[in-house]
């Protein structure tokens, strides 16, 4: 059971809580397969998408999740909100709570912003991405996708490839995978591997080809991370071309891995940079499954966090 008000970080979840969320999502995936993709479960509940950092995918995913549970959902995004007029995040959130919101889904460019709200508000907070810190629902849907295909998480070998330093998805993913007993290797240039990662208990590899082709240690899952094109401007990589050459997942590279390897990506994809179109659209790719599963997992999160009496 999820005996908590908020979902702020994977680091706060116990493995059995993660299992509960994934198991619950199975039922919701079945609901999504129906003609009438709606259940009355959260009727009368109010969810606010408070997206201080813009997003189409995640916002729409949460919106569909809420609506399929018959909850009411309101989208508040920066450009149209009073935050641009200088209102503080805390004041904005308190106003929303005063309108009797039951749950706020927050995406914010600064790490720790959801924690600030969770401390101050009674209603639940779901972290939909805070700075470079975490994106818990993404990690959960990634786990769901892997488990669906591989039947297990424990003992799997997973490569996380790309700009780990700036990636909240990478952080949430590796914490979730480690909690469920998977082995994680971070792959990327040294400038994009953070310092101070000793407590994470992960491997690091600078050479993508080697990491893919290691005999008896071939990865079961490859998660490609999006490269933000501004990183080249800041000097983390000399050029997109060089990055792509060294860390892009092409068909040739993919063939070094085992034939049943899963290729994943949180989206949106930079076709031709971190992943080539034929791989993204190919048989090993479960990228679109991730999107489908995302709605089911978010339905599970809304159900588990919003139901029941808050004591």
């Amino acid at each position: 059971m999820l005996k908590r008000k908020d979902l702020l970080a994977i680091t706060e979840l116990a493995p059995d809580e993660i299992t509960t969320i994934l198991d619950t999502a199975v039922s919701f995936k079945e609901v999504m397969a129906r003609d009438i993709k709606k259940v009355p479960t959260l009727r009368g509940k109010t969810v606010i998408n408070l997206f201080v950092e813009p997003s189409t995918r995640t916002r729409t995913s949460f919106e569909l999740a809420a609506k399929r549970l018959s909850a009411d959902l309101v989208n508040v995004s920066t450009s149209t909100s009073s935050l641009t007029k200088g209102e503080s995040l805390l004041d904005m959130a308190k106003n929303l709570e005063a309108m009797r919101a039951d749950l706020i889904v927050l995406r914010h460019p600064v790490a720790g912003a959801p924690h600030l709200l969770a401390r101050a508000l009674q209603c639940g907070i779901i972290n939909a991405g805070d700075g470079a810190h975490e994106h818990p629902s993404q990690a959960l849907l990634d786990l769901f996708t892997i488990r669906e295909r591989k039947k297990t998480l424990s003992g799997l070998r997973v490569l996380l490839v790309g700009d780990i330093l700036h990636s909240r998805v990478a952080r949430s993913d590796l914490h979730a995978l480690r909690k469920m007993g998977a082995e994680v290797t971070l792959v990327g240039p040294a400038t994009m591997i953070p310092r101070g990662i000793e407590p994470w208990d992960v491997q690091v590899a600078y050479n993508f080809d080697e990491a893919l082709g290691k005999e008896n240690q071939k990865p079961d899952v490859i998660i490609m991370l999006r490269l933000q094109l501004e990183r080249q401007e800041k000097g983390f990589i000399p050029s997109l071309r060089e990055y792509s050459r060294l860390y892009g997942l092409t068909m040739a590279r993919l063939r070094r891995a085992s034939p049943d390897v899963l290729v994943m990506h949180p989206g949106p994809i930079n076709r031709g940079i971190e992943i080539s179109p034929d791989v993204a659209d190919g048989l090993s790719s479960v990228i679109l499954d991730q999107v489908t599963n995302g709605v089911a997992v978010r339905m599970a999160l809304l159900y588990l966090l919003m139901g029941g009496k808050t004591e």
Binding site: M1, L2, K3, T20, D23, T24, V26, S27, F28, E30, V31, V39, P40, T41, Y303, L304, G307, G308, K309, E311
Partner: peptide
């Protein structure tokens, strides 16, 4: 998912498959 007493219970009941 269709129960009328979900909001009255202390904890969310575990979902089983249809």
């Amino acid at each position: 998912l269709y129960r009328d007493d979900l909001m009255l219970k202390k904890e969310q009941p575990v979902l089983k498959k249809t």
